[in-house]
């Protein structure tokens, strides 16, 4: 049975916005699993910690499986400690996004996050031998590689997850580009990233939207949308479909995917609902089709 998951919030949403978001997810969103935790910037983590136990409880009470995700970049003392502390947890499940987490976790069960570069069957087999139970594939993988990786993961008894909605992570850095845009540095950022709940848009100098800045992370301008490819993903053995939280109507987004996965919604109808839930954002599926990631390949053209 294919599961719908909600990835960790990439942005620095204010605490109240987070609380409201997860309350609504718990009550209304047809997702099976929810990843929580700060993945991008260790400076933001303290703002979430107070609410975390209540959020976990609320989601679990609503029947969702909760997984805690680890930081993608581990360099500073506080990042090393946060990673080690997470790796020491017995429950809930954890998703590891940095080799420092693998080191701390040892062979105890864990999920492999999308920042771990699980590109191929040999690496996935290695990770499985070290206790991985589940693997998220990198957002840039094309369909043939997804199929080969999913087949291998399935044979090893692993869950295998692909991001099907939301901005793709394109890069991380040690430098904070939100702070830089405001003439600050990471150490005196004053959390200016809080003002951009869907990332800070960058355009080319001739006014073409191109990228989004989220602190140390650079994201795609377009939302990845693999709703038309969902049936194929399930066919090749992908077990979990990840929706990344955006400043959009995520309940409607989840409902569109749920409807297609369950076969209760016609694809065109679901696609229309999805796009309506996302305001004026552009969509892309180029990575999946082996083209430039920003491109939108139509079903007819893709065959």
């Amino acid at each position: 049975m294919t599961k719908l998951t909600l990835g960790p919030i990439a942005y620095h949403w204010p605490a109240e916005m987070r609380r409201d978001f997860y309350t609504r997810i718990a009550d209304e969103a047809p997702v099976d699993e929810v990843y929580l935790g700060e993945v991008i910037c260790s400076k933001r983590a303290p703002f979430q910690e107070a609410d975390l136990p209540a959020t976990i409880e609320r989601l679990e009470r609503a029947g969702k499986t909760v997984i805690l995700s680890s930081l993608a970049e581990v360099m500073l003392t506080r990042e090393r400690k946060a990673t080690a502390d997470l790796a020491a947890l017995e429950a809930p499940e954890i998703e590891i996004n940095n080799a420092a987490g693998l080191f701390a976790r040892g062979k105890r069960p864990h999920r492999i996050g999308p920042f771990m570069n699980a590109y191929n069957e040999v690496t996935i087999a290695w990770m499985a031998s070290q206790g991985a139970t589940h693997v998220s594939l990198p957002a840039e993988m094309p369909a043939p590689a997804i199929a080969a990786a999913a087949g291998a993961a399935r044979d090893l008894g692993l869950g295998v997850e692909v991001q099907v909605f939301g901005r793709a992570s394109l890069a991380v850095s040690a430098r904070c580009y939100h702070a830089r845009a405001h003439g600050r540095t990471k150490d005196n950022c004053q959390f200016v990233c809080e003002n951009d709940d869907d990332g800070m848009p960058l355009r080319t100098t001739d006014n073409r939207p191109i990228l989004r800045v989220n602190g140390i992370q650079t994201q795609s301008e377009s939302y990845v949308d693999l709703l038309p490819e969902t049936a194929r993903l399930i066919e090749v053995g992908v077990t979990h479909l990840r929706l990344m939280p955006q400043a959009a109507d995520m309940v409607a987004v989840a409902s569109a995917f749920r409807g297609v996965v369950d076969g209760t919604h016609d694809l065109l109808e679901a696609e229309a609902g999805l796009h309506q839930a996302c305001g004026g954002n552009s969509f892309s599926n180029g990575f999946y089709h082996g083209e430039a990631g920003y491109r939108r390949i139509s079903r007819a053209a893709a065959g």
């Binding site: 993608a72 920042f115 570069n117 990198p138 957002a139 840039e140 793709a168 992570s169 394109l170 890069a171 991380v172 191109i210 990228l211 650079t218 795609s220 180029g286 990575f287 430039a292 990631g293 920003y294």
Partner: peptide, 8 residues
């Protein structure tokens, strides 16, 4: 960890 080139 950089897919910028692939994106464009």
């Amino acid at each position: 960890r950089c897919s910028l080139t692939n994106y464009l």
